[in-house]
Design a protein around this nucleic acid. Structure first.
Lengths: 196, 196
DNA sequence: CCGGTTCTGCACCGTTCGATGCAATACGGT
DNA sequence: ACCGTATTGCATCGAACGGTGCAGAACCGG
């Protein structure tokens, strides 16, 4: 019918995701984004209508990708419940190290956006809240299984433990952005496992 | 000798601190700041030379104020070591609730700046790192005392435990910014205490 | 009371921001 | 082959940004 796009929408979203991830929403200009992805601004605006809309799409994509990672680890049938939680921490700690090795900055877009935008942008807050609820539900399920298997003996309720694990992951992310090395992050994760 | 200032420098720093705290560095304009404090931009630039310099001063002030709070709680001779750590969590959880009640946003400037700026601004990173080292040292001291008193039985080393406690505090801050209520924050803190 | 110095208020500078207008272009359907 | 449509590249818009210049006002020491 008409002239087709010459760029892959998901590739733009991935690039935007990395840029917002590394520098935050406010500090990333649409010109930076377009230069990084090799596109003209009119093409981007034509496809995504606004900087904010582009960011929300990138955030939604990030959330989906990491959510897939999360459930893959937390539903792994080859491991026992606490091994899965331990593996989750491994993924976080190792991911921080890998991101740093590969030139990407530390931290994660979820935490960064919670800190920078969730108080001011209701739509971003909604995306983050849905993601949080999914993560907490997955964690609660593993914690319930861990209790049934006798691996988790904490007297705290499932929701509290799930929020605790999630908070420690956020704390690890912040610590990594604060310059902590892999050994320190590993130590934080080990302490968290002790609490279960 | 000459015309004196008509404003209190610390009052400007406090207002700037709150503004940066609530909206972040990039999203806070010097015009916003001047309107909030009722000053002209030339006065602010005359006193603080640049937006970045003003921010760094405000951050340094925030760090000093909270550091004083921290040592007051962690060195309280009327409590046992573990009670002091518990009291520290109390301060954090209660502080989040209080800030929300009083119209200030959740979270803390230290965590926010770590996330938004520490990767891009070496001077900000330096301030945050010094503060981190102070906090970890205070925590390690309390943890050592807790071990001597038999209250802390974790096999993890002091530094790991200190970093763990600090990370959980950051996690609580992020959780609060993500919309978690006081009960949830309290639960996270309780789980952290179990690990010691 | 007055000289010297600093602060204040207002206008303004150049840059960058997010966003748009528009002509030229490239494609798909018929 | 060609028409209609969407995309592309370039120029440009108004607004907001961080920062500055300058005239007049306010103060302190003498």
């Amino acid at each position: 019918m008409a002239r087709p796009r010459t760029f892959d929408e998901d590739r733009v979203l991935d690039t935007a995701m990395r840029a917002f991830w590394a520098n935050g929403y406010e500090a990333t200009s649409t010109r930076d984004l377009c230069e990084a992805v090799g596109l003209d601004r009119s093409s981007v605006y034509n496809a995504f209508t606004s900087k904010r809309e582009l960011f929300l799409r990138a955030l939604a994509r990030y959330v989906d990708l990491t959510s897939a990672d999360l459930t893959r680890v937390l539903d792994d049938p080859e491991r026992s419940p606490i091994e899965r939680i331990s593996a989750l921490f491994d993924v976080v700690v190792e991911g921080e190290a890998a991101n740093r090795r590969e030139g990407y900055g530390p931290g994660c877009l979820t935490v960064n956006t919670t800190v920078e935008l969730s108080g001011r942008d209701p739509e971003a807050a909604r995306i983050l809240e849905r993601d949080l609820e999914r993560r907490l539900e997955a964690l609660r399920a593993v914690i319930r299984a861990g209790r049934a298997a006798g691996e988790i003996t904490s007297p705290r309720d499932d929701d509290g433990l799930a929020r605790f694990v999630n908070a420690v992951i956020a704390g690890i992310r912040v610590a990594s952005q604060g310059g902590a090395g892999p050994a320190s992050l590993r130590a934080i994760a080990d302490c968290a496992l002790d609490a279960l």
